[in-house]
């Protein structure tokens, strides 16, 4: 495994409901990222379809693997690159059961997926109306490091990032579709999740306007000490590459040893209290 990995933040704008267009945009960005030396390219939440699909989600969702995965697998193989993107996933067993899913592809094809565990259903968000909750937070061992995936609102909950870190993640990827009024939340949460777990965190947000919502971009790579290694522009499409050096993990763990100082006995108490809320 290389010590240093080049991560491309592909901050794109999507056409709602137009998978063909969005796949073309993704392929174009993958090619450009590869030319710039990227090992991994990350796209926003639901980048296959756009975010606000509403009832169209039922016809846009695909099983995994499915035709869009096959199409992007070809690109991953051809460019010898890792890709993370978002899509509405259709259950194989019950076709109207959908998940908001992040997919990881590699040079050998599909590696795995993560189904969003925290679905926002408040304010302008209506995800529980369409999606089923995910129940697993897998960590993927790849040639470019151990990686865990999260999606947007998951950042508000420290448990999932912690779980991924305890399972061995060196890099946590968060794909997002966050509207502008929430930028200050994500700027804080992404830094906090990286720092409290001494882990690299790559956050990629959507840009563009959907249904009057303006997505703010501001994608970033955060080092285990909380510093920002790379940052995309706000409010416009951008492709930014940052280099992560896994050797920094050990230095960060020694400097602020949050993993050493964890108090596992608190977790039972957390569960008890959360159930009684």
């Amino acid at each position: 495994m290389p010590e240093k990995v080049n991560v491309a933040l592909a901050q794109i704008s999507c056409k709602v409901g137009d998978k063909k267009h969005n796949i073309n945009v993704m392929k174009n960005n993958i090619k450009r990222a590869k030319e710039k030396g990227a090992n991994l390219v990350i796209f926003p939440e639901l980048s296959l379809t756009g975010y606000l699909n509403r009832d169209l989600a039922y016809e846009l969702a695909e099983p995994i693997p499915g035709s869009s995965i096959y199409s992007l697998e070809e690109t991953a193989k051809k460019e010898n690159i890792y890709i993370v993107f978002g899509m509405p996933e259709q259950s194989e067993k019950a076709h109207a059961v959908l998940y908001n899913t992040a997919v990881l592809l590699g040079p050998d094809g599909l590696i795995g997926k993560y189904r969003k565990m925290h679905l926002p259903t408040h304010s302008v968000f209506e995800e529980k109306r369409y999606f089923r909750l995910g129940y697993e937070a897998p960590v993927f061992e790849t040639e470019i490091g151990k990686m865990g995936l999260t999606i947007c609102y998951d950042m508000f909950f420290p448990e999932i990032s912690r779980l991924l870190r305890l399972k061995g993640s060196q890099l946590i990827v968060c794909i997002s579709a966050s509207p502008a009024v929430r930028s200050r939340f994500f700027e804080v949460f992404t830094a906090a999740r990286a720092l409290e777990n001494t882990v690299f965190l790559a956050y990629v947000n959507l840009v563009g306007v959907e249904n009057g919502l303006q997505f703010w971009g501001g994608s970033r790579i955060i080092a285990p000490d909380g510093s920002i290694l790379a940052k995309a522009n706000y409010d416009e499409e951008d492709l930014v590459i940052g280099t992560i050096d896994y050797a920094d993990l050990e230095r960060a763990e020694a400097f602020v040893p949050t993993l050493r100082d964890l108090r596992p006995e608190l977790f039972n108490s957390l569960r008890e209290q959360a159930e009684k809320l």
Binding site: K15, V16, G17, E210
Partner: peptide
């Protein structure tokens, strides 16, 4: 089955 203004929920200008 689905009613305009109630549970017919479509995106604005999807294409």
């Amino acid at each position: 089955y689905r009613t305009i203004g109630k549970d017919f929920r479509l995106p604005h200008k999807p294409y």
